[in-house]
Computed example of a mutant assay.
Amino acid sequence: MADILPFRKPRASDKHRGKTLCRHNHHQWKIDKKTVFDNKRGCLVTRFHCLRCGKVKTRPL
């Protein structure tokens, strides 16, 4: 059997679900433990990434 495709266009609220908070700087930050040393600064850093939009920020220790 074939896959059934939806014929209805997705609503704007479904398409932008969870991203409106990030537009108003209410990100959901999670610590990324892969990168702990920044060669450009020469120090240890904590790297955060947003679970919703994927934005990355770094903070020195």
Rank of each mutant, 00 (worst) to 15 (best):
L5W: 04
C53E: 07
C50E: 08
N25T: 03
H26M: 13
K9Y: 04
S13T: 12
V45H: 04
R23T: 06
G18C: 02
D14R: 12
R8Q: 15
A12T: 10
I31K: 15
H27D: 06
K19V: 09
G42A: 11
G54R: 04
K33Q: 11
K40Q: 10
L44R: 14
H26Q: 15
I31P: 01
K34G: 00
R23L: 15
W29M: 03
H27M: 03
T46V: 14
W29V: 02
D38C: 15
P10I: 12
T46D: 06
T20A: 14
A12R: 10
L51C: 03
G42N: 10
K33M: 02
P6Q: 09
D3M: 07
H24K: 14
T20F: 02
A2P: 10
D38S: 15
G42W: 02
R8Y: 03
G54S: 07
N25Q: 07
H27N: 04
F37M: 05
L5N: 05
R41L: 12
F48G: 00
A2Q: 08
H24T: 14
V36C: 05
R41N: 05
W29N: 03
D32M: 04
R11C: 05
D32R: 08
D38W: 01
R52M: 07
K34R: 13
H26E: 13
R41I: 01
C22T: 04
K55A: 11
A2T: 06
H49S: 13
K33T: 12
D14Q: 12
K34E: 15
K57L: 03
K55Y: 11
F37W: 15
C50W: 03
D32H: 03
T20G: 00
P10T: 06
R11V: 00
K9D: 06
F37C: 02
R17E: 14
I31A: 08
F37H: 12
L21C: 02
R52S: 13
R11D: 04
P6E: 11
K40M: 04
D3N: 11
A12F: 10
F37K: 11
R52N: 14
C50A: 06
G54K: 06
D14G: 11
P6S: 13
